Simulated assay, not measured.
Amino acid sequence: MPPQYYAPPPPPGPQYGWGPLPPQPRKRSGGTALLVVAVLAVVAAGGVFLAVKLTQGGGDGPATAAPVATESATPEPTTAPSSVPPPPPTAAPRPTRTTRTTTKVTPPKPAQTVNPATYNATHRLYKTGVMRTVNCKQAKTGLGNGSQSLAYFKTIKTCLDRAWPKQVAASGGPFRSPGLVVWGGSVNTPCGGGVGRSFYCPTTHTIYMESPSIVSFYKQNPTFGRMVGTFTMAHEYAHAVQWMTGLGVAYTRLRYDASAAGALQLSRRLELQASCLGNVFLGANRNSYGITGYAYQMWLYDVNNSGDRPPYPRDHGSTTNHGAWSRAAFQSRNPASCNTWSASPARVS
């Protein structure tokens, strides 16, 4: 269950989403060597908007009111009048020595406030063990347009909905399948809007997948586009896991009193953990999903080249650190590899 804190949450701020996408790799004609394009492709959506809201899972269970304790007053005994004469007087009894019984009362322990930094650094999620495969398979549809993207992301989400409940429950959090919106152009949410980035909004417990950028990658290199789309979806779903388990709630409490530099470091810890947890899922399903051979090379290129770049703020982590956390999680398939909250500042720079 998410911890309770005394500090109020910060006002609605930026959404928790994916950082700048990596540059598009290109294959040389007839060869397998990759040429890194230095300029990030910018996709103009032309005002096209695709927003398909999928059915959200579960939702909060019905609230059950706790029984209210009631007291029934017992009437004091009364003496009814009687026609029987009173008994004759008797000698007063001798006083007897009474023994005083002392009962030791133990005061209740005061409620302890959970320290959000300690909560995140020692979370039970890290002890839930290796994630088992759910034999997730890639959708046969590609990512050539918005409707195909919707079908593709729905397939991945179905796998994620089967992979994470056990881990979330073992960590003490209630699992709720997040919603999904696939969009292009612009989108407005309680967490703000976004252009060119996918994100997760805790307020609506919904993942907002921006499709035009990924469609562009897919048209240039289908395998790379699939790996970018797959990893982005796993990353955003991991943000939903952070909020289901209380890690995200604790993050907002830590950020409330943080300095500007401190807030950026907290954001990097949150984002690097989301990428790490996303790759726990991908590593657990690497064989059934087909992240082998050339697809593995494209996944590796993606995670090793994703991260903060000028002029973006340093809120997602360096490409070096992003690759390190991602590779470790892919190999271990264990959330224990994703404790960014106890890592040194250098590992989350």
Score class of each variant (00 low, 15 high):
Val52Leu: 12
Val52Arg: 06
Lys53Ser: 15
Lys53His: 15
Lys53Glu: 15
Lys53Asn: 15
Thr55His: 08
Gly57Gln: 13
Gly58Thr: 14
Gly58Tyr: 06
Asp60Val: 00
Gly61Ser: 11
Gly61Phe: 13
Ala63Asp: 12
Ala63Glu: 13
Ala63Met: 10
Ala66Trp: 04
Ala66Lys: 03
Val68Trp: 07
Val68His: 11
Thr70His: 08
Thr70Gly: 03
Ser72Gln: 01
Thr74Glu: 09
Thr74Gly: 02
Ala80Ile: 13
Ser82Thr: 15
Ser83Gln: 08
Ser83Thr: 13
Val84Asn: 03
Pro88Ala: 08
Thr90His: 10
Thr90Ile: 13
Ala92Cys: 11
Ala92Asp: 14
Pro93Tyr: 03
Pro95Met: 09
Thr98Ser: 09
Thr98Trp: 13
Arg100Lys: 09
Arg100Val: 06
Thr101Asn: 06
Thr101Gly: 01
Thr101Tyr: 07
Thr101Phe: 07
Thr103Ile: 15
Pro107Leu: 08
Pro110Gln: 07
Ala111Glu: 10
Ala111Phe: 11
Ala111Tyr: 11
Thr113Gly: 03
Asn115Arg: 02
Asn115Glu: 01
Pro116Thr: 12
Pro116Asp: 07
Thr118Val: 02
Tyr119Trp: 13
Tyr119Arg: 06
Tyr119Asn: 00
Thr122Phe: 05
Thr122Gly: 09
His123Trp: 15
His123Lys: 11
Leu125Phe: 09
Leu125Ile: 15
Leu125Pro: 04
Tyr126Ala: 11
Lys127Ile: 01
Lys127Ala: 11
Val130Arg: 10
Val130Glu: 04
Met131Asp: 03
Met131Trp: 03
Cys136Gly: 04
Ala139Phe: 07
